[in-house]
């Protein structure tokens, strides 16, 4: 049987504090291995703090590459096949069977279209969207506060709360999953 997970959600009013909290929690985790997951909720993108959370593997560009290549091939083949198909009905004697300039133009557009679509698909997958809002989500995060979400087991709540409280959070929410 799985142990129930506890989630602590604290909000802070600036990034410097949030960064220090994350650092402190990481140090705590190194010592005692009690934290399952730390996540940062913020109203703007903030690479400095995100780096502290550790590497998040998001190879979106590979999907882009895949989409672009597929798009180029598919649209080229579509036009080439359509041109051939037309040839059986309407021979265009003396003209190229597969008109290259045309195919390049259409393949160019197809590359971009499929590239964009695949990129966005990958974005949704890696960002974990669409999803329902977490129960503990604090609406202040979309305004001007920074939220830190810590997942842990019940017995460690006290230790983590101590760290969080050290940095004067605006609010701490506790949720059992």
């Amino acid at each position: 049987m799985k142990h129930p997970k506890y989630i602590l959600f604290a909000t802070f009013d600036n990034f410097t504090k949030a960064r220090d909290v994350v650092m402190e929690l990481k140090v705590l985790d190194l010592r005692e291995k009690i934290i399952d997951d730390i996540d940062l909720f913020s109203p703007i993108e903030h690479p400095d703090v995100e780096e502290m959370l550790g590497e998040i593997h998001q190879p979106i560009q590979r999907f882009t590459f895949f989409g672009a290549v597929t798009g180029a091939l598919c649209s080229f083949l579509l036009v080439a096949a359509a041109a051939q198909s037309m040839f059986t009905v309407q021979p265009q004697g003396g003209k190229a069977v597969i008109p290259l300039p045309t195919d390049i133009v259409i393949a160019y557009e197809g590359t971009i279209l499929f590239g964009v679509l695949c990129t966005l698909g990958a974005f949704l997958a890696y960002a974990g969207l669409p999803r329902r809002l977490s129960k503990h989500y604090n609406e202040k995060v979309s305004d001007d506060q920074i939220g830190i979400e810590v997942t842990t087991a019940k017995e460690n709540i006290g230790a983590i709360k101590d760290v969080l409280n050290k940095f004067e959070p605006l609010e701490i929410r506790e949720i059992t999953q």
Binding site: F87, P91, G93, G94, K95, A96, V97
Partner: peptide, 11 residues
Amino acid sequence: NWSDLRKRDYY
């Protein structure tokens, strides 16, 4: 008919 179709003197 590939080679025929793209011949200049197809007709």
